[in-house]
């Protein structure tokens, strides 16, 4: 049985439809960057190991380097170019800016897409690997710095900007009314700008 090894596909990206022919070997990451000029999404490892290529698929975070473009047809794809509301930055983008959640910026689009979805996962009551009791009867785990670090562990930062990334995610989560349970006291302190001690 001979099968065609290429297809014309339509991708729904940031609310816009893009129709393009692709070789089936094309990853979503390469389609975005090389074919559609959406270069905000970064390629780090190309093996699922760094999170730089994180996008949202139907609202959930995913690594676009292991996602075949042809298999993404029909799904709602959101990239870093699509998270702001016009000129109004997404609260997670604003928090990264305000709290210096980056150094070189290479991992930042992936960090921000990941954090947007992570905050929603926590609000939906998903436990994590550091949640002490995963049973649904247990009180939902408040968002602590430890929880943020675990939940964001799929995004590596070669510059080691983790301290300010955790603070930026905390700030954005705190601003999100949907956070049930609310962020922990520790985190509220972490998110506050008074934490910028030592800066003249």
């Amino acid at each position: 049985m001979s099968q065609s090894t290429a297809s014309v596909i339509t991708l729904n990206i940031n609310g816009e439809k893009h129709t393009l022919p692709v070789d089936h070997r094309t990853t979503l990451l390469d389609a975005l960057r090389e074919r559609l000029d959406l270069t905000g999404t970064k390629k780090g490892c190309d093996q699922g190991q760094c999170g730089a290529c994180t996008v949202l698929l139907d609202g959930r975070r995913a690594v676009s380097c292991l996602q075949l473009a042809v298999a993404a047809e029909g799904r709602e794809i959101t990239t870093i170019e699509g998270v702001a509301d016009g000129e109004q930055l997404h609260p997670v983008q604003q928090a990264f800016l305000d709290l210096d959640g980056y150094q070189c910026g290479f991992c930042t689009p992936g960090q921000i897409c990941s954090a947007i979805a992570m905050i929603e996962e926590h609000a939906a009551g998903w436990p994590s690997a550091v949640t002490a009791d995963v049973r649904p009867e247990a009180e939902a785990a408040p968002l602590t710095a430890e929880e943020i670090r675990e939940r964001m562990s799929g995004n590596l930062c070669r510059c080691g900007a983790y301290v300010s990334i955790v603070r930026a995610v905390a700030r954005a989560a705190q601003a999100d009314d949907a956070q049930q349970p609310p962020v922990s006291d520790e985190l509220a302190r972490l998110a506050g700008s008074e934490q910028k001690e030592g800066v003249a």
Binding site: E121, T131, V134, R135, G154
Partner: peptide, 19 residues
């Protein structure tokens, strides 16, 4: 089966577990 939920959560990353 809490150990099953914990085992899955201990694997890979949030992005990879979604896929």
């Amino acid at each position: 089966y809490p150990a099953l939920a914990q085992a899955v959560l201990a694997g890979a990353s949030g992005q990879l577990r979604n896929m």
